[in-house]
């Protein structure tokens, strides 16, 4: 298959991921364009049979981390609990709330607030439905780190949503 045939079906997904990372439309567009340009240039090095989707997302992520916004985002310190074994969720927020428009906006805002290292693994897992191994390949971290970051991302997200829901109730 040609690069075009492999890459264009991923366009919307890559753009969505890029926008989640950059939080800016123009930067997301630049990021996607640069990703495609780099991928096309390096397509000869892509090994057929390996995971093209993970390859494209890895290029996008690396390109993002080398951008000004990416460098800034990467300086945000991770939660010191990273590396700990996955923790059971201390869930007090009602996960079963109907995800109406307001709840969705709260959820989106909470995801945006996540440090980039957590946000990316969460999105790759929940939105792109990548396996831990694919996420590890995309983000270039061990699978154990994927699991711990994912667990941490989920906990932080729940806490952020809970906090926002409480604020909404209070107001």
């Amino acid at each position: 298959m040609s690069f075009e045939q492999l890459a264009m079906p991923l366009f919307e997904r890559l753009y969505n991921f890029a926008h989640w990372l950059t939080q800016n439309r123009d930067e997301a567009e630049d990021l996607v364009q640069e990703t495609y340009a780099k991928a096309l240039k390096g397509f000869s090095s892509f090994q057929p049979g390996t995971n093209f989707k993970a390859w494209m997302f890895r290029i996008l992520r690396n390109t993002f981390l080398n951008s000004r916004t990416g460098l800034r985002a990467a300086t945000v310190p991770l939660d010191p609990a990273e590396g700990d074994p996955a923790l059971p969720a201390e869930v007090q927020t009602p996960e079963t709330i109907l995800i109406d428009r307001t709840s969705r906006e709260i959820m989106q805002a909470a995801i945006e607030e996540l440090p980039i290292a957590y946000r990316e693994v969460l999105l790759l897992c929940e939105v792109e439905e990548m396996s831990y191994q694919e996420i590890a390949a995309t983000v270039a971290i061990p699978i154990g780190t994927v699991m711990s970051r994912l667990s941490r991302a989920r906990r932080l997200l729940r806490q952020a949503v809970e906090r926002k829901l409480q604020l909404r109730s209070a107001s």
Binding site: F11, I97, E126
Partner: peptide, 21 residues
């Protein structure tokens, strides 16, 4: 069940959140 619902909520909120031009 709660975690499954949570996964769905995250997916619903984040997938196709941003549409490309």
């Amino acid at each position: 069940l709660r975690r499954l619902q949570w996964k769905k909520n995250v997916q619903s909120a984040a997938a196709q959140r941003y549409g490309a031009d």
